[in-house]
Write a protein that binds this DNA or RNA. Structure first.
Lengths: 404, 404
DNA sequence: CCGCTTAGTAAATAGAAAAAACTAAGTGGA
DNA sequence: TCCACTTAGTTTTTTCTATTTACTAAGCGG
């Protein structure tokens, strides 16, 4: 979401009504099967208010009624669930080596996905191709019959705050791209909320927002691919993405880990990316740009020079994770990106270092959950779709008016 | 503020009323001299609603009317200001070398302050002394005649999230201290909101919250003293403090800058604090614990070994600042703590490094405002007082009911 | 002096949630 | 089977808040 801090919050009755409808929808989304009575308790609203709110959400197709609950000595409540048949969310990621597209339900379940390999080209050509692919995706059966709520695009670089501009994508060679504007002419009939964000931030958002049950208070997604980026989201009810004044929050690949170290493409020395990233591994092992890094390395994991290179990179990754722990201290860390496919030779040293040191300061034994995503292909695209949904439920999107 | 994420937000009419009153108060606090009409425009409320809200805030002593504004072809509006005569906020910082106390107005103006030097002792003894000093502070003329809204305590270590427990204060030798509970018996008659937070987080909060006019969207306060800590606040209307799941957010002193480097007191190697901190400078120059670091160094700034030590420490500080820029990317950085008194020999290299590298990634010339606080003695204490006010205006404190 | 503009207040209205009273639908015990 | 009891959910009435509309207040400029 490229939107940011609104003016000071005040509101009228209409605002209050919508706030409460959003709260109801959000509660059911996070805890499927709640009854009206449960909602009334948790949201601190009266049964009457909840009843009216649920009714209109049912009427508009956001919710559906489920089975009767077990009785505990009284009338059993009726379970409520998201109505996942009605709407669809579109998400896409523009990556260095390809386009990833998803169409998913309100619960984040991917209905259809598509991965198109391609070599980096201009924003205009990319937008045209993405437009065609999205158009094709929308023609597929499970998507076509649903109402589309909007489209989110994840991009590999910092996004300007408050306006949808990709400031820089070093690995694509792009700068100051208004990608949504380029895409719009190719999808003239796609209504709903359109937004774009950095891929790691979208991924982080989706990982938190589509979670049900026990929801962490904050989450950092570390994207380890050609470069290294991260995204932090905070707040379990409406996750807030940390962007920074220039969109540079989470650019952990350019934190300095080795003052006076190797030169980075950014011009500084000793950046984390000079130690751990797709390009630093290529450079260390002399792997050409044309070859697929992962495919060329997977058969060579036993070779000593590969092992040494990956171990060193892994140690640097471990330092990055620990530094994240001591600066953001998220409730959960999710590690994704193409490099995770290299497995233990890279990740072993990283996780070992992190686990060995994460409790030094407090002297406790609490472990911060750290999950490695093996296949992170569609995570960012799905996250961008999540951001669309959130902007409708919590934001100022007109689509939120259908709650009434 | 040691409170965190509430349950999902829904509300009744009372909640709405209070939200709007808070918004009005907040607008006047941030922009003194607004008229009712200005507020109606900015808060998107009608004149009637604003009029009623202002009236009750006037009645309760939160606001006062000021002079008539210049007319622009119609009836001139009446300026509104915070009523600073009515209330007082108390803040205190427990530091390694002393206790700092302030009493300040709603606008953050310090009415009375006190700095008590002392050597670290037990939490119990410290609480008793602080209780006496606060009691004395409250007897002073400008404080005594006002209604006290509460007390905020800033402490030099990570605070547990959601509960007021100081988990660890390495430089005091404290662990798991419920400081408010220890203090309570010594101030039985002090009503209002009590809270505690980490000193860098309190400082950051205060620096943002008491700002008027053009308010940054986020701010990081870096506290460079015996150790190095930082606090980040985000959101210009209600600043949100990043705490982390264990309260470790902002512990930048324990980010690793030199893998395999010197041993830190935390047991890890190459922490930032081994390169730049009060204790690392003491260690490098052989300055005993009993001596005051700053006083012993100020006359020696010309000595070559001192210069080399401070330059190296400064360079490490510069790396820390740059890493902050690439992880949080705050709108503004404020650098405080006792080490800033060492001036150019330490700060020169730090600021040079930061300024030389902060624009590498985007290739722009935008400078992130970086302000060095020469005398940061009462910043954290004042920030803790700010947190008290914020918890009343925006939070669930009963004192917020006086808005009606 | 008078039309015009803007600030602020007062009275009437609309609309939201709450409160109270109700119906619905189960339990369990006699 | 009946019936007291419990909990879920709805309907009706009431309360409360912001809005709307109409008004008064107070300046400007011709």
């Amino acid at each position: 979401m490229s939107t940011s801090n609104q003016q000071h919050k005040a509101g009228d009755l209409h605002f209050l009504k919508r706030l409460n409808r959003s709260a109801i929808l959000e509660l059911v989304r996070r805890t499927p099967g709640l009854t009206r009575a449960d909602i009334a308790t948790q949201a601190q609203l009266t049964k009457a208010t909840v009843g009216a709110g649920v009714q209109s959400l049912l009427n508009q197709g956001w919710l559906r009624e489920g089975e009767l609950q077990k009785s505990s000595g009284g009338r059993p409540g009726r379970a409520l669930h998201l109505n996942e048949e009605q709407h669809v969310l579109l998400g896409a990621e523009v990556g260095v080596h390809g386009l990833r597209l998803v169409a998913c339900t309100l619960a984040g379940q991917v209905l259809v996905s598509h991965h198109e390999h391609l070599v980096p080209t201009t924003p205009e050509v990319t937008a045209e191709l993405l437009g065609e692919l999205l158009h094709a995706l929308m023609q597929e059966a499970p998507v076509k019959k649903r109402r589309c709520l909007g489209l989110g695009i994840a991009l590999p670089g910092p996004i300007a705050p408050n306006k949808p501009v990709l400031r820089l994508a070093p690995n694509l060679g792009w700068r100051d791209v208004r990608f949504l504007e380029l895409l719009r002419p190719h999808l003239p009939h796609l209504e709903g909320t359109w937004l774009m964000d950095n891929e790691a931030k979208s991924a982080a958002f989706g990982e938190l927002y589509f979670r049900t049950g026990n929801i962490p208070e904050s989450l950092v997604y570390v994207s380890a691919g050609t470069g290294i980026g991260s995204g932090m989201v905070e707040g379990s009810h409406l996750p807030l993405v940390t962007r920074g004044i220039q969109g540079l929050a989470g650019e952990i690949g350019h934190t300095v880990l080795q003052p006076g170290g190797l030169y980075c493409h950014c011009g500084n020395r000793g950046c984390a990316e000079t130690l751990v990233s797709g390009w630093s591994i290529r450079a260390a092992l002399g792997i050409a740009e044309e070859e697929d890094l992962i495919e060329s390395l997977l058969p060579r994991l036993d070779e000593p020079d590969v092992q040494v290179t990956l171990r060193r990179a892994g140690e640097a990754l471990g330092v990055l994770l620990l530094n994240l722990h001591h600066t953001q201290n998220p409730s959960e860390i999710v590690l994704g990106g193409s490099l995770t496919q290299l497995g233990a030779p890279l990740l072993g040293p990283a996780l070992d270092f992190f686990k060995a040191n994460q409790n030094r300061l407090l002297g406790t034994t609490q472990q911060v959950p750290l999950r490695v995503v093996q296949d992170s292909t569609f995570i960012a695209a799905r996250g961008a779709a999540a951001q669309v949904l959130a902007s409708i439920i919590h934001g100022s999107s007109d689509l939120g008016d259908t709650f009434f």
